[in-house]
Each structure stands twice: as C-alpha cells, then as structure tokens.
Design a protein around this nucleic acid. Structure first.
Length: 362
DNA sequence: GAATCGTGGGA
DNA sequence: TTCCCAAGATT
C-alpha cells in the first residue's frame, strides 16, 4: 500500500523556531485587541465565540456574543433553552445550523460529560459542529494544549511564512499546514501562539496589501524575503452562483393576522420562519387566486404588490416578488403554518430576506 | 471532493 | 456593480 506522506520538516526546518515563537507571542501580548471572549478562559464562552467566528468578522460577532452570553450565561442555560430562542439570538448571523449544532453538542456535554467541555481531542472533535479548527482553538485557548488551530488566517500566514504555493481552497492543504503548525507551535503558550497567528492574519498579514513593514515576524518570512507575499496564498476561484425566483406571499386576514410557515429542519435556513414562498416556475401571477384556492383553500379579496426583495446567499440569489394578499372568510392553517399578529412575528427567528419583507408591512 | 450553508462590508 | 472576503463544518 502506497501512503502519500507530507514532509512538513522540509518547510519548517527553515524557520528559527524559538525566535519565531518569541517574536509572535511578544507581539500578540502587546498588540492584541480587547475582545469580549478574551476576558477569561471559560471553555463554554471560548466555544461559543469560535462557532460564531466561523466565516464571520470579529466586528459582526461582538454584539451577538454579548447578547448570547447574557441570554445563555452557562452551558446548562443553553442546554435547557428552547431551540427557537437560540435561533432568535442567532438571527442575522447566518449559517443557522451552527446554532442548532452548538445547542445539540452542549446538551451532549451536559448529559455525557457532566457539563464539562471535554479536553481530549478525540472526544471534543466528535461533538456536533466542532471540526478540526474549532477543536484546536478550544484545546489551545481554553486548555493550553499545543494543538493546531488552522483557519483561513493561519493558512494565509503560513503560506507566506513558508512560501507554500499549495491551493488553500484544497482541503488537503489545511492538513499540511496543521503539520507545519504542530512543528512550530509553542508548548509554553499555545494559546498566544495560535491566537497570535490569527491576529496577525486579521490585522497585518491581510489578503490584499499586507503591511509587512509592521510585521513582527517579517525576518522569518520566506515570501517577504522573495518578494512574493502579494501573490500568496494561491486560492482557486469559486464558481458562479445560481438565481432563483419566487413569489413571497404576505397573507393577511380580516383580523390583521399574518400567515407564516416554519422551514424544514434541514437545508437552507433550517427551522427559520418565513412568509409563504412559491417558485415562480410553478405559477404565474394571474393564476395565483386559483392556485391559492386549490392548494390552501383560501379566497383572495385583493392583492397589493410591495417592493421586490433581492437577497444574495453564498451560492444562490433569491429574487422575491412580494405580494400582500388579503384573504376573506375564516382561515385554517396547515400544520407547519401559523396565523399570527405582528407582535408575535417579532419573536420568531426570521432570515434577513424575510425581515426585509416584514419591514414593508404597514 | 465538491456542494451546501448566510450575511455584511470593503475594494 | 461585482467580486471577494471573514476565527469552517457537514454531507
């Protein structure tokens, strides 16, 4: 059997390890930003912050983190909370499965590990939503264990430090860089080492126009030495996204009540609430009254067209034609749909696209 | 391995 | 406008 091996030493041997560690950690200790999740080493709070920070900027996360910890101060509080309250606290942050996975994992920690976040890599990595990066982040930051925590920042920083031209869009590259970090990580302060790499990537070793003149590890950087820092890391481009068109129907009855439905528990915007959507390819606007009568059994008194909503996701763009539809008679809603007043809607977790619709309701 | 899964901000 | 980007994980 042939096993492909990656010789990380081929890269990391070029680095003066202890000087690199010292320069990075001293810089981090002096320059690190004062962020709310750096107030203490509570594994639960570190965990929450790391999940929120996935693919999300620090400035965006700060208020969500503050509110989340106020609402769910401890692991047990989160375990006992209603899922809908958790989703509401996550509303607007995106990637909502993060919130559901976090709560599921926290419940497992309560039941299986007596409410103590595991400090063993294998056990921690089995929890829902805890992948290679988050596992390493919790272990190093909360438990001072010398484990790699390789995110986009670290891949960029290491691509430059080591002058690696591997495509960072390739999954395999993360594993290679994990090996390199394992070679170089400080065993005296793995937390400052890992966070220092990320802090450096976020503030100095930026994707475009890195400020190498301010870099604490400039003298250790192979890319800077070769003058190729602007062309690293190599990253292949994502393909173009699809476009989908829907009617978004704001059904309203005689008592100023609106009809919303809960989305399926898997897939896009799982378990979030929304106004009823109909794929435009299924029905034309003229046919709507007939369609609504056949599918829902409701009679339409009048239709008013509101402003269209365009919403861009990572891989899809929604074009929503928004229609406020007055219904007559008594309304019976199906299992997953509910009739409710505006005040009630405000308590439900809505994706941003449907907040845009809600904000148009008079 | 490639797709899926959100959102807001900046160049 | 359009594109890229941000402390990734899951399927």
């Amino acid at each position: 059997m042939i096993v492909k091996t990656f010789d990380s030493k081929k890269y990391t041997n070029k680095i003066e390890k202890h000087a690199f560690q010292k320069d990075l950690i001293n810089w981090y200790d002096a320059e690190k930003r004062d962020l709310p999740w750096r107030a203490d080493q509570d594994p639960y709070k570190i965990w929450v912050s790391e999940i929120m920070l996935q693919q999300t900027k620090v400035d965006t996360v700060i208020p969500y983190f503050q509110n989340f910890i106020t609402s769910f101060p401890t692991l047990n509080d989160l375990a006992e909370a209603e899922e809908e309250k958790v989703l509401k606290a996550w509303e607007g942050l995106g990637y909502y499965s993060r919130a559901r996975n976090l709560q599921a994992a926290v419940r497992e920690v309560v039941e299986v590990y007596e409410s103590k976040v595991p400090d063993q890599p294998d056990l921690l990595g089995e929890l829902k939503g805890v992948g290679p990066y988050t596992k390493g982040a919790i272990l190093s930051i909360a438990y001072e264990k010398p484990e790699p925590a390789v995110d986009g920042n670290v891949m960029r920083v290491f691509s430059r430090i080591l002058a690696m031209d591997d495509d960072i869009a390739n999954q395999q590259t993360r594993k290679k860089i994990e090996s390199c970090v394992t070679d170089l990580i400080s065993h005296e302060d793995p937390s400052a080492f890992n966070q220092g790499l990320m802090e450096l990537g976020a503030t100095v070793c930026t994707p475009k126009k890195p400020t190498c003149l301010l870099c604490p590890v400039q003298e250790h950087c192979q890319a800077f030495e070769q003058g190729i820092q602007e062309s690293l890391p190599v990253k292949s481009k994502a393909k173009k996204q699809k476009s989908l068109e829907y009617f978004a129907l704001v059904f309203k009855d005689e008592n100023e009540k609106y009809i919303l439905e809960k989305r399926p528990e898997t897939g896009l915007l799982a378990n979030m609430w929304q106004f009823i959507m109909i794929d435009k390819s299924e029905v034309q606007k003229k046919q709507l009254p007939l369609y609504v009568r056949e599918k829902y059994g409701w009679s339409i008194k009048g239709i008013k067209e509101l402003s269209p909503v365009k919403h861009v996701f990572s891989h899809i763009t929604w074009h929503l034609t928004v229609l406020e539809v007055e219904l007559e008679g008594e309304i019976k809603t199906e299992a997953q749909a509910s009739l409710m007043k505006k005040e009630k809607i405000k308590e439900l977790p809505l994706p941003v696209s449907h907040q845009k619709i809600f904000n148009q309701i008079t």
